[in-house]
Design a protein around this nucleic acid. Structure first.
Lengths: 254, 254
DNA sequence: CTTGACTTTGACGCTGCGTCAACTTATATC
DNA sequence: GATATAAGTTGACGCAGCGTCAAAGTCAAG
């Protein structure tokens, strides 16, 4: 029989820990004195070793109790679930590391760090908004990898690059509107130039440009109401015009 | 001016969170009503965005407060420190994942999982004890990588392998004692056989066997009192005998 | 003046113990 | 048997970052 201090020294845990384990019903002493003193036997040492075995693997005490006391408990299943949990934690940390590294890079060489901070936050906001609006659709169509990569590209842009990206988008919409209002043909030279701008604009976020993807994107503009609404907001017909122009130009280049 | 609910909706956090931030002095409202109602302005929105910016990167609120309120605070330094912290967390998780994966593998195909569990714990104990005793010395001499690899090798042993490993060690010590008691020469055939056993024994944990390392190990036996004590515990002279035998045999093989 | 929507403070809960504090017991010494 | 000391006991608070009641006060609208 071992006193609480003896067991704590054998197992390398504090007496407080043993009392706590008693309290939550994880490890009861073999018996208690009439004065309330706790005494542990060999069995309890074994139990404690098992507890520590799982604790070292990062399991919470509630799960450990289930493993050790629920008869016929699915041990293998519990371990695999715990493994998945750990991998999620790891993914989360990897994400944080990525974010912090990017922030450090972005703030280096920039005069005002607070400025860089705000710019970062701004880009993140833009990406998040975009994700909320088109994320599901894009992921279904191009896959998670492509979309994640595109987002990474945006997040890594410098202020100059981002400004160019925004201006490009604006210029496309402007020239589209003018073309549609002037009733220009989607086969015209101006339409071709707009398509080239659009291609450049896409290239700033896509991992790699392909004609297929470009045409698929164009198709989205007329088939998905949210995309269509985006281009037709001020002048109706822009989405259709852009789609035709892309279909002509990108098909003809071949 | 925004009420607490308005700000919480703008920023996507709960009102409770805002009250908590007020309480810990992280974000005070622009002013409070005579009734205690909190009201926030544009400045506070900005502040909150900054807070959330760092919170998303996994920083604790205390650090964030320092960053935002301590004038001339070393922002870059804080970010890099945080990065190191995250990397440590990642290392810890990687270690846990490794442990759990090994446990899952070890328990698969074994009849009694509790048995496998105990065996794992047993090996871990052995490795830990060894680390406590010789770890620092070994790491200085062979480097962390080698030692870690050796430990991994032991931890991955099956029960049969581990038994063989233990028996080999015991046999070496037994035959050493007999040889020394019988006053056999370190040049003798029996000494040679012991050296071969010792080589096999080392091979079970070392990443790769080299004669240099073998001789260095032998040298440890006579130069380090803890190693010497290990072999001389029952019959004095065993450590010296083994060292000489290894020096002869390993040198002569060339 | 009443209703209903908001807001306030206060307090417990969660995780796994560390760390007092105030007391009671066991053990060794004289 | 008295006493000093070591070891044990049961609370209870603290930590981080809020979620989640509860009880009570406040505001704008009708």
């Amino acid at each position: 029989m071992y006193s609480i201090r003896e067991l704590s020294e054998i197992a390398g845990v504090s007496a407080r820990t043993l009392r706590y384990y008693d309290q939550i019903g994880l490890l009861k002493p073999a018996y208690t004195n009439e004065a309330g003193y706790r005494f542990y036997g060999e069995q309890e040492i074994n139990m404690l070793q098992q507890i520590l075995f799982y604790r070292e693997r990062g399991m919470d005490l509630k799960s450990i109790r289930k493993i050790l006391y629920d008869e016929e408990f699915d041990l293998a299943g519990a371990l695999e679930e715990h493994l998945r949990d750990l991998e999620q934690q790891k993914n989360r940390i990897d994400l944080l590391i990525d974010l912090v590294q990017r922030s450090i890079r972005a703030m280096k060489g920039v005069g005002d760090m607070r400025d860089a901070e705000k710019f970062q936050a701004f880009k993140e906001n833009a990406v998040k908004q975009h994700e909320d609006m088109y994320g599901a659709e894009a992921r279904r169509k191009y896959g998670d990898e492509e979309v994640d990569e595109a987002q990474r590209k945006v997040l890594n842009m410098t202020e100059e690059e981002y400004e160019r990206f925004e201006n490009l988008g604006k210029e496309i919409r402007e020239r589209l509107k003018e073309a549609v209002l002037a009733d220009v043909s989607p086969d015209s030279e101006e339409a071709g130039r707009i398509v080239m701008l659009h291609k450049e604009w896409l290239g700033m976020t896509w991992k790699k440009y392909t004609e297929e993807a470009h045409k698929a994107m164009a198709n989205l503009y007329i088939s998905d109401e949210r995309f269509q609404a985006y281009y037709d907001r001020e002048v109706p017909g822009c989405a259709v015009f852009l789609e035709q122009a892309i279909r002509n130009k990108v098909g003809a280049e071949k």
